[in-house]
Amino acid sequence: MNSSVIISHAAASDRADFYKKTYTHVAMAILAFIVVESFLIQVVPEEFILGMLGGRFLWLGILGLFWLGSYVSEKWTLSQSKTVQYAGLGFYVLLEAVIFLPLIYMAATYAGIDVIKQAGMITLALFVGLTAVVFMTNKDFSFLRTAIVVGGFISLGLIVAGAIFGFNLGLWFSVGMVILAGASILYQTSKLKDAYSTDQYVGAALLLFSSVMLLFWYVLRILMSRRS
């Protein structure tokens, strides 16, 4: 943390400016993701994408790199340098685009572009709704932290086990992950005022963007399962 004012202690005008910048950057990150993902779909060879789908241990390696990259990018977004902050956010957007590549390919190929659009609209509606709940009720959702941490470790263990042993986690796992992502959005949104200072809106945007993308991933998987 730097020496600037924590949001909960800032003036009302500064808080409003922080939230405006944060959600603007979330929107910019989503748009950047769409652009990068569209580019990757066009230029990455189909054989490479299919290799990501078929190689369990390759997929585990990619996930490992993603977690490492997520940690690095989060640290960058909390830097006092705006250049480093934006580099962190941009790096994370690129990581998400790579991770989403096989899922988007499968959705476009076997379920159709409309499913991707529907998943995006549902994700956006859920994000806006959950965000509105936090700001309209002014409720502290910090009590969700333990459930989110435990749920995160359990889900990660199941994902790794599924990748190693080759079993499908199924529809109900996706439903559970949507609930977990929704809880994360509630918790993260309510804690912004206590965890970030007025000039750390890029880091706050990355935090929310990561939960939005997690939500989108499993909403899309649910819609795809209904088409199969």
Rank of each mutant, 00 (worst) to 15 (best):
S79G: 08
S210Y: 10
H25K: 06
A163V: 01
T198P: 04
S190V: 06
G152H: 14
F143I: 03
A12E: 13
Q118G: 00
M213R: 12
E96R: 08
I104N: 00
I122P: 06
A11W: 01
S155Q: 07
F18L: 11
M106H: 01
M121L: 15
V93S: 04
T189A: 03
T123E: 04
D194A: 11
L53H: 02
L78A: 11
V98D: 02
L220Q: 05
K193E: 13
L124P: 11
F100P: 01
S38H: 08
L124Q: 13
I154S: 02
L206C: 03
V98A: 02
F33P: 06
I164D: 07
V134R: 10
V84G: 02
G54V: 04
P102A: 06
W172E: 08
A183I: 14
K193F: 01
P102G: 06
I6E: 08
I179L: 12
M213G: 10
Q42M: 09
W217V: 11
A205Q: 05
R221T: 15
F141A: 05
D14Q: 15
D194H: 12
Y86T: 01
V160P: 00
V35K: 02
Y71L: 11
A12Q: 11
V175D: 02
V93G: 02
M121V: 14
V202S: 00
R221N: 15
L130R: 08
L158D: 08
F173L: 06
G64T: 03
A147I: 13
G54I: 02
G162W: 12
S3A: 15
M106L: 11
Y19W: 12
T83I: 13
F209N: 01
I6G: 03
S184C: 09
V35F: 06
L50W: 02
F91Q: 11
F165R: 08
L68A: 09
M136A: 14
V202C: 00
S184K: 13
V149G: 04
E46L: 06
V149R: 09
T146Y: 14
V212M: 09
S190E: 08
L130H: 05
Y196A: 04
W59M: 14
V128A: 06
G166Y: 13
V84I: 14
M177R: 13
V219R: 01
A32Q: 05
K191W: 08
G166N: 13
A181Y: 11
L68R: 00
V5A: 03
A181T: 09
S190K: 06
L89M: 10
L60A: 09
S197F: 03
Y201F: 13
S211C: 05
Y201P: 05
I113C: 00
F18Y: 12
L94Y: 00
S38Q: 10
G51N: 04
G151R: 05
A11T: 07
A125E: 14
L223Q: 09
M52T: 00
A205S: 13
F216W: 07
V5G: 01
F57W: 15
V72F: 05
P45W: 05
V178Y: 07
S174A: 15
S210H: 10
I148H: 09
V26N: 03
L89V: 11
L214K: 03
Y187V: 04
V219C: 04
